[in-house]
Simulated assay, not measured.
Amino acid sequence: MTEPSASGAPSPRRLDRRTFVAAAGLAAAGTAWAATATGKAHAAAAPGGFAVPLDTVAHTRTWMAWPDSSAIWGRQLAGVQADIALVAKTIARYEPVTVCANSASVATARGACGSAVTVLGSIPVDDCWMRDTGPVFRTDGGGGLDAIGLNFNGWGNKQAHAKDALVAQRIAASLGVPFTAAGVVGEGGAVETDGNGTLMATRSSLINTNRNRNMKQAQIEAALCEAFGATEVIWFNGVTGRDITDDHIDATSRFLAAGAGLVQMPLATDNDAWSKDARQQYQTLSASRDAAGNPIRVTQFQGPDYGLIRSSDPNFGAAYANYYVCNGAVISAQFGDVRADAAAKATLQRLFPGRVVEQLDIDRLGAGGGGIHCVTQQQPRP
């Protein structure tokens, strides 16, 4: 169900993947995180050498995945494929793009994405959410590259994921880079890093029995820090059981640099669970310090008016914050609220000087609850 906003209109649910959902998965998703503490927690020391860099570093390529399951997408499949192709073709103007597809769909994917995009039929996929299923790459500052996997389990066993569970290690193997499974179950969209020792995440997504049933917060922190090469985790409570991701961080809060972040803010009149969550994230991040002990400067990134966007789907996720940074560009969404779209583009242009800001209509993807960051995974240059 959607929750009414202050105006009485239904509020959208973000990142609510259009999926077939098992009853057991839904029951697990409803398990609430009971802790009330917010803010930063000290975790295990980072390992020597490898760490996940900030996404603004130079990339070797972008990885994506081609959806072809009508069981998941139904009549929306063709529209979602068109959005995936648009994102791939746009990014390919700035850096190489490789799309993983099931062998039966390679020709379709190549035809839609064009010759500038590489399509591989050797790494099968269940769906298109490469941010969550793909490898998280690390560098060591000396030319080294490796990859970690976050043990994807279909967002807490809510969606079939036999192929997607293997995507991370298969991509790493195709590149010949070392691969390590992290000591935690999660997804790439559930963790943001500043590339300098600080992470942020929601408790609702990671400290959840549908991912990490027998782990306490301190254990999850230690595993995340070891995997990402960090020392500090900033936790937000998040929203449990309202969407398939249990509130991924990359729809609301992002790091811009060490000591700098942004939070997408709701309208002042919005008072649904997601709006309250965004305000709490802003308050918590604004009061936090990074791994070096510096206060974090937070930019408010204004979200659209859901009454003015093109889509009337109650599951639509209008997340400007779900942008993707690639070589020389920032790829973002626009939703039809003309004033808000223009303001978002201007904000991104100010925050990323020297990069082209591309705004795309990806409404079919948004109706499935995802965005551009959700369907991309960067491979940084070593």
Rank of each mutant, 00 (worst) to 15 (best):
V177R: 08
F301R: 05
R75G: 09
G197C: 07
D146A: 09
G197V: 06
G114E: 04
A58F: 03
A92K: 12
T60S: 14
S286Y: 04
I296Q: 07
R279N: 12
N102H: 02
A168F: 03
A257F: 00
G8W: 03
G371P: 00
V356I: 11
Q219E: 15
W66Q: 00
E192T: 09
V233P: 11
K158G: 05
H59Q: 13
A71G: 14
A230N: 08
L26T: 14
Y320Q: 09
A260M: 02
T133M: 14
A107T: 14
T19C: 10
V57F: 11
G259H: 02
S174N: 09
T98S: 13
G49M: 09
T38K: 11
P96G: 08
A218P: 01
W66A: 01
G176L: 06
S204T: 04
N208C: 05
N315T: 11
N210W: 00
K89L: 06
F236Q: 10
T193Y: 11
D313C: 06
W155R: 06
I207P: 00
Q159G: 03
G111Q: 15
R297V: 13
G142E: 13
A51F: 15
V375H: 01
G25S: 09
T19L: 14
V185N: 14
A165M: 09
V52W: 10
W73N: 01
R310H: 12
V191G: 02
K158A: 05
G303D: 06
I296E: 06
L348G: 02
K40P: 14
I91S: 07
L206C: 04
V125W: 04
L262Y: 01
A24T: 13
C374Y: 00
D146V: 09
D194A: 03
M1N: 10
V330F: 06
R254W: 05
Q379P: 02
A51H: 15
D246W: 02
R13M: 00
A258I: 03
V136I: 14
A222Y: 07
S288W: 10
I207E: 02
R131S: 02
E358Q: 13
N157S: 13
P314I: 10
P304T: 06
I148V: 15
A268R: 08
L262E: 07
H248Y: 08
T209H: 09
R381D: 09
D305G: 04
D55L: 12
I372C: 00
D243W: 05
G79F: 00
S204G: 01
S5P: 01
S288H: 08
T198R: 05
T284E: 03
S311R: 10
E232C: 13
F352D: 02
I296S: 04
A160F: 09
A344Y: 05
L224K: 03
N214I: 04
A173W: 00
A27K: 15
A34T: 15
D313K: 03
V191S: 05
A44I: 09
S286M: 05
G39C: 13
V298A: 10
F255H: 08
E358S: 07
S103R: 15
Q81K: 11
A45L: 12
P124Y: 07
K345G: 09
G259P: 02
G368A: 12
G369V: 01
G30P: 11
A45H: 13
L166W: 00
K276Y: 04
R170G: 03
Q280H: 12
Q349V: 01
D250K: 01
Q281A: 12
E358A: 07
I296D: 05
S70C: 00
D270Y: 06
N294L: 12
